[in-house]
């Protein structure tokens, strides 16, 4: 009972503090502090409720147990991370995004292809492509190559649609200007088309970071060697070792956020001129 009371009191205290902070001066520090306090509160509530109601660790392990498991299984987690993220997700991400980028540039020259591919691309982007995973596992085998292939087809269409949209984003005056200079196709592309497309391209790249990780993990549910984040999650779930599952999920969350954050940082550097980045 004391756990529950502690949890509720802690929650009320933190909430009051946050409300007070939110009303006060909005410094950089406060803007980071408020969500951090909220996150900590959630963890404390989780820990207390699991202990207070004596919830079986088979259902929901407390954060402390997850942290302990995380630290004690670092080598396994690292091996899984390399298998799934570096080999599967990252390679597929690079191949898929570059292929989509080059296709978009090829398509951009032809209005006919653009009008044909865009609706199809938009359509495919909404499909449950992840379902292709069993087929690709059959074609490319159990190891990371099949995961990479799943990621390639998952990221291809969102990236294609965004890049094509970006290449059409240049405004009429800027295009006319290039004409008055008698610029060649490639000069127009490199000096106007690509820079103007960058905000869209990075939007695509950011969306694809999450898709890549999902593709690589879920593809492992259909068959994998005895390592990898998806493999570990599905087998440890089977053995009801939920603390290990949560540890893998933590790795996935950290990897996903870091991947996304990296792309967002590069975006900030490249598209510093765009109104959304200027503040």
């Amino acid at each position: 009972m004391s756990w529950i009371v502690t949890a509720v009191v802690f929650w009320l205290a933190m909430w009051t503090l946050n409300v007070r902070l939110a009303k006060g001066e909005q410094t950089r520090f406060v803007k980071i502090l408020v969500p951090t306090l909220f996150g900590v509160t959630l963890l404390v509530l989780w820990e207390s409720f699991v202990r207070g109601f004596s919830i079986s660790p088979i259902l929901l392990p407390p954060p402390s147990a997850i942290a302990a498991r995380f630290v004690s299984s670092l080598p396994t987690l690292w091996e899984d991370f390399v298998q799934t993220f570096i080999k599967g997700a990252l390679s597929g991400y690079v191949i898929g995004c570059s292929a989509a980028f080059l296709t978009a540039i090829a398509v951009d020259r032809s209005d006919f292809l653009k009008r044909g591919l865009l609706p199809i691309g938009n359509f495919v982007a909404a499909l449950p492509i992840i379902g292709m995973a069993p087929i690709l596992v059959m074609w490319f085998g159990f190891d990371w190559q099949s995961k990479s292939a799943v990621v390639v087809i998952m990221v291809f269409f969102p990236m294609l649609v965004n890049t094509v949209a970006g290449l059409s984003a240049k405004d009429a005056i800027q295009t006319d200007l290039m004409n008055t200079y008698g610029a060649s196709y490639w000069q127009s592309l490199f000096k106007l088309g690509l820079p103007a497309a960058m905000p869209f391209i990075f939007n695509g790249l950011k969306i694809c970071t999450t898709l890549a990780l999902i593709g690589a993990i879920v593809a492992e549910f259909f068959g994998s060697p005895i390592r990898g984040m998806g493999f570990r999650i599905s087998t440890e779930v089977g053995r009801l070792a939920l603390d290990m599952v949560w540890a893998e999920i933590t790795v996935a969350a950290l990897a996903g956020s870091a991947f996304y954050g990296t792309m967002a940082l590069i975006e900030k550097a490249v598209t510093f001129w765009h109104p959304s980045q200027r503040n």
Partner: peptide
């Protein structure tokens, strides 16, 4: 807004689907 929104945005970058089996 200040407490929850950053987490909502961060959670979009997490492969939530991995939690499905659990």
């Amino acid at each position: 807004d200040m407490s929850v929104m950053p987490w909502v945005i961060t959670s979009q970058t997490i492969p939530i689907l991995a939690v499905a089996p659990m």
